[in-house]
């Protein structure tokens, strides 16, 4: 897995999927259209400010609420390379892994990293290096079969391989 380097954008606790991508934009599945409205109801200028490779750092229960996969799709298509949070709501957690949006759970990184910090992330090791503050954080490891889904680039590729192998 690749090493990520980007600037941190911070959000608080309980960021819900209505805020990540409001329902008024759910009449499309086009990732680029969704990306243009990513996080709009939390920060209307977010989509215009973010650069490819940037990282979202949030508090508890990120992605709570609706099951809309448009939420991680919008984040991924906006150029966000990884979401770090103290914890994730369970449907968002599944969706992010399934579509190949890297996520990491680290309470320490969530509370220490500040907006504008530069971070370098080694996804395979779950290591988060705070370049600005000179600290390191380690995220919880994923179970092996989830790592396998991520290695395949998401659930669809993983399932295609399984179907092909007759599992």
């Amino acid at each position: 897995m690749q090493v990520i380097k980007g600037r941190v954008w911070t959000f608080g606790d309980d960021i819900d999927t209505d805020v990540i991508i409001p329902a008024r934009y759910l009449n499309t599945t086009d990732p680029s259209e969704l990306a243009a409205h990513c996080m709009e109801d939390a920060d209307p200028r977010f989509a215009g400010k973010v650069s490819a490779g940037d990282v979202i750092v949030a508090g508890r229960n990120f992605g709570c609420g609706s099951s809309r996969e448009h939420a991680p799709l919008a984040i991924k298509a906006a150029g966000i390379s990884c979401v770090i949070a103290e914890s994730f709501a369970r449907i968002f957690y599944r969706n992010a892994i399934n579509i190949g949006l890297p996520i990491l759970e680290s309470a320490e990184a969530s509370s220490c990293l500040k907006e504008g910090d530069m971070v370098e992330i080694d996804l395979a090791r779950g290591e988060i290096k705070d370049i600005t503050g000179g600290r390191r954080f380690t995220a919880a490891a994923f179970p092996p079969f989830m790592q396998e889904i991520m290695r395949c680039g998401g659930l669809i590729n993983y399932t295609r391989e399984k179907v092909k192998n007759g599992d």
């Binding site: 809309r68 996969e69 991680p72 599944r94 969706n95 399934n98 579509i99 659930l155 669809i156």
Partner: peptide
């Protein structure tokens, strides 16, 4: 339980 679209596809 609720899941996302990709889970439904699989």
């Amino acid at each position: 339980t609720g899941v996302g679209s990709t889970d439904l596809a699989a």
